[in-house]
Write a protein that binds this DNA or RNA. Structure first.
Length: 829
RNA sequence: GGGCGAUUAGCUCAGUUGGCUAGAGCACCUGUCUUACAAACAGGGGGUCGCAGGUUCGAGUCCUGCAUCGCCCA
């Protein structure tokens, strides 16, 4: 409407765990890459057919209890079926909501272009030295069995218990022969590789440099000082395990401690011979081996119970002073880290992953964050705080199936072992590529898995690795039809505040690493719709609402009206009355349009003072609404428009004109009235068009479409706009629809004065208990000099609207808060 | 523990750089079938602006502290 050629693409983020989980639950299957493909499944062309085939392989009831393993290829096909269904539902909803999306610009993060550009991103990062693969302790979800990134982890307040456990000091000559540590995770005792306390803590100063012996497993571990140990917490001395948390990782690294990985990728205790592969104090080897053996295969919680039992056995003491467990466990609540989509706590496992180097670029990332205009401003703080608190590089590899493959292979040595240092990256011409299906450059397929041959990376990218490229995907970065120079950086990223640390952050990071630029100039951060008690909506709490039933009940315009009331960055309490108000606005627009377009009369210009004064106010409304929209303050624009529509246009201007539009004796005044009404309606429809597009376009279609040759209000020029921008073609503003062509009134206060006068007359009629349409035989207004002067040019309209033959004046209003007061005499019947 | 936001009428919310008697819609009360609209219109009542200090001629607005709620992070 303002003449700009705007791109508004639609992208579907269909990679990732939620899709996989839905497929697993919906079909009763699980992905097993070792499993052969099922030919029948390849024939399936949709959900129903697929279910029938699966039912013939294994009944549904049994599959739900014990999921059917299927090949990766088959699994991915099912993922596509599910995402297609979901996307269809959203597409239908967005159509009904009237979003002006360029549907020809639709893309999905799993489609060929997105995969190609995501892999191109990896190639570029690799070329620039920003990626590396390494075997490191990483946050791991034991249910999904994948690495997760810092951004995907959240703290949850959980019940736990401090267990006080006695350790022995190895040195027989030490002053202190034993000490007690306090831990919430006794099951990690077998992974204990050190003990630490604060360097200034007098209780433990003498121990530093000596060794401790753990109970139950009789492991010899160093005692070292650390500033990070809190003397106030627990007993002030604690065990370091591989790995309980991020601090353990740091202690392990800084002190070159041993690695005792006790947990397997599925969250169970690994088979390992304590006292054989891992040391145990002399004479205790068998005991250590037997104790650990009883834990093998147990889940974390089971292992915890078993270790606590063993800690109650004095035979397992390292000091021969009775049971190592001191007293009863003390219940506490404490924050526990979870993968945001997970049901069991995060564990720190050592595994090989791919990383994007970000920790060394915090300053640059802050600079780019400052170069983006955040709306509202304070949202920038969220970004800055997150960037400041980064403590790990971005782990981008995921041990999942439905995602963009990492385009990498590894050469195998003569023993068939991967040489990770010499990894092979795909070449540009291969993209998109699935390395498990295509041989590495320079190799042939028959060398796959053979000594001296190659082996494919099976991991896929984190879903954010692709969705952080949405500007580049839309701009087709690096493709033959590249549009980067026109579309990058983009103008606006609209998104909610919960994904500043992920979507916004990673998108800024990628734009910086690839282009040393910002991805967009503005970030408009919306709040959430919260339930009437201001609680976050969630499916599991049962307080969530979905838009479609509301669209069906109240109409798309009412739903849009409601959402347009939300201020950027502010949560909005769900309030159904707002839909009703939106519905009333739609009805009112319909009725006002019907009335205005039914007024006929001689053709003519807007010459009357009242009409020009009304248009002058309307110009101001246009100016304020336009300014607000320029600042992304759409709620303000709507409110300014709506206020004037009700109190300026329908309740007053239309009412004041009803006399003149029917006055056969004043052709010029009548023509001016009809023209003023129609221009007013035309402008109001265009101002409302972004908010209530359906009714605005409906009313436009009745007369204006044909009259102007502009078939839709959404193609009509924005009131007061400069016309076509940047080479776009726009229809000119048709005669009678151009607000700027109307001359200024003689007195800018005319319309306001008429409005106040009519209010005074209404008040008098209301207080007299008579109908507002009741004709008057006399109408006397009290007004001061200024009031009389402001009214002088519009008296005829005021008298007609009041139902009086004429207006006479009295002295100024004494007291009160109005300029005008009316004395009325109803006409005798 | 750190950061951010919010707290204004019964409800949902505006209130721009400090400045007339703090506003809107809904709800409530009263009136009106009025030639676009009764899913309407008109009139009216209703607030110690979370609390306590401070700055100022003047504070819903600025400063300090506190309380409550929410979000983000540790």
């Amino acid at each position: 409407m303002t003449g700009w050629n705007v791109i508004y693409p639609m992208g579907w983020d269909d990679n990732g765990l939620p899709t996989e989980r839905r497929v697993q639950n919906f079909f009763g299957v699980r992905c097993d890459p070792e499993h052969p493909t099922e030919p029948a499944l390849a024939e399936a062309n949709g959900i129903n057919k697929t279910r029938a085939i699966l039912d013939s392989l294994k009944p549904h009831k049994e599959r739900i209890k014990d999921p059917l393993p299927i090949a990766r290829e088959d699994f991915i096909r099912l993922c596509h079926f599910v995402t297609e269904e979901d996307e269809k539902a959203y597409r239908d909803l967005f159509y009904r909501m009237g979003y002006s999306i360029d549907w020809s610009e639709e893309y999905a993060t799993i489609d060929d272009r997105s995969r190609r550009i995501a892999q191109r991103s990896f190639l570029d990062l690799n070329r620039k030295g920003h990626v590396y693969t390494s075997e490191l302790p990483t946050m791991w979800d034991v249910d999904f069995q994948t690495a997760v990134a810092q951004a995907e982890v959240e703290d949850r307040e959980k019940n736990g218990a401090y267990h006080d456990i006695e350790f022995a000091v190895e040195d027989p000559n030490a002053d202190v022969k034993s000490f007690v540590i306090s831990t919430t995770r006794p099951e990690l005792l077998a992974a204990c590789v050190g003990v630490t306390a604060h360097p200034d803590d007098p209780r433990f100063k003498g121990l530093f440099g000596k060794y401790a012996i753990t109970p139950v497993f009789f492991s010899r571990v160093p005692i070292f000082p650390s500033d990070k140990a809190d003397p106030e917490k627990g007993t002030g001395i604690l065990m370091v395990c591989t790995f309980g948390d991020q601090t353990d990782v740091e202690w392990w690294r800084e002190n070159s401690l041993q690695l005792k990985a006790v947990l397997d990728k599925d969250g169970r205790i690994r088979p390992m011979e304590y006292g054989v592969e891992w040391d145990a104090a002399k004479g205790h080897e068998d005991r250590a081996k037997e104790n650990f053996g009883s834990l093998v295969g147990l889940r974390v919680n089971q292992a915890k119970r078993r270790v606590v039992e063993m800690l109650q056995d004095s035979e397992n003491s390292a000091t021969s002073k009775g049971a190592p467990l001191q007293g009863e466990p003390k219940p506490i609540t404490h924050p526990v880290r979870y993968y945001e989509k997970g049901d069991n706590p995060i564990e720190y496992l050592t595994s090989r992953q791919w990383f994007v180097r970000l920790l060394d670029k915090k300053d640059q990332l802050q600079g780019k964050g400052e170069a983006v205009r955040w709306r509202p401003d304070f949202m920038h703080k969220r970004y800055a705080n997150w960037t400041d608190g980064l403590n790990a590089d971005w782990a981008v590899s995921r041990q999942r199936y439905f995602g963009v493959p990492i385009p990498v292979w590894y050469p195998l040595n003569e023993h068939g072992e991967r040489d990770y240092g010499k990894y092979i990256v795909a070449t540009e011409d291969m993209l998109p590529v699935d390395p498990t299906a295509t041989p590495a450059p320079g190799y042939t397929e028959d060398q796959r898995g053979k000594p001296g041959g190659f082996d494919a990376e099976v991991d896929v990218f984190d879903t954010w690795f692709t969705s952080s490229l949405t500007p580049q995907i839309v701009a087709r970065w690096g493709d033959a039809d590249d549009r980067m120079s026109q579309l990058f950086p983009m103008d606006l990223r609209p998104q909610a505040h919960d994904i500043i640390r992920t979507w916004a952050f990673y998108t800024i990071a990628k734009a910086m690493l690839h282009h040393d630029d910002v991805p967009w100039h503005n970030a408009a951060i919306s709040g959430f719709i919260v339930d009437p008690d201001r609680k976050k909506m969630s499916k599991s709490k049962g307080n969530a609402i979905t838009p479609l039933p509301l669209v069906e009940q109240y109409g798309a315009d009412a739903v849009r009206y409601w959402s347009a009331n939300g201020r950027l960055g502010m949560d909005m309490a769900y309030d159904e009355t707002v839909f009703k108000i939106g519905g009333k606005l739609v009805t009112k627009l319909y009725n006002a349009g019907k009335f205005v377009l039914s007024q006929t009369g001689p053709q003519g210009d807007i010459t009357h003072e009242l009409d020009r004064a009304f248009i002058a106010e309307l110009k101001d409304v246009v100016r304020r609404a336009t300014t607000a929209l320029d600042e992304y303050e759409f709620a303000v624009a709507l409110q300014v428009t709506e206020d004037f529509f009700w109190s300026g246009f329908t309740d007053n201007y239309i009412e004041l004109l009803k006399g003149r539009t029917r006055n056969d004796d004043d052709a010029e005044g009548r023509a001016s009235a009809v023209a003023g009404l129609r221009l007013g309606l035309s402008v109001m429809l265009r101002l409302f068009a972004p908010f209530v597009p359906t009714i605005a376009d409906e009313v436009w279609s009745w007369v204006f479409a044909e009259e102007t040759g502009v078939p839709s209000v959404h193609l009509a020029p924005w009131p007061g706009s400069a016309g076509a921008q940047g080479g776009m073609s726009m229809p000119g503003v048709p005669a009678g629809h151009d607000i700027s062509a109307v001359p200024a009134p003689q007195n800018p206060g005319s319309f306001a004065a008429a409005r106040e006068a009519i209010a005074a007359i209404r008040k008098a009629k209301s207080e007299a208990g008579i109908s507002l349409g009741k004709p008057l035989s006399s109408l006397v207004l009290s007004a001061d000099e200024k009031g009389r002067s402001d009214l002088s040019l519009v008296l005829g309209d005021v008298a007609a609207a009041g139902g009086a033959p004429s207006v006479s004046f009295n002295g100024a209003v004494t007291g009160g808060d109005t300029r005008f007061e009316a004395e009325i005499t109803p006409l005798e019947e």
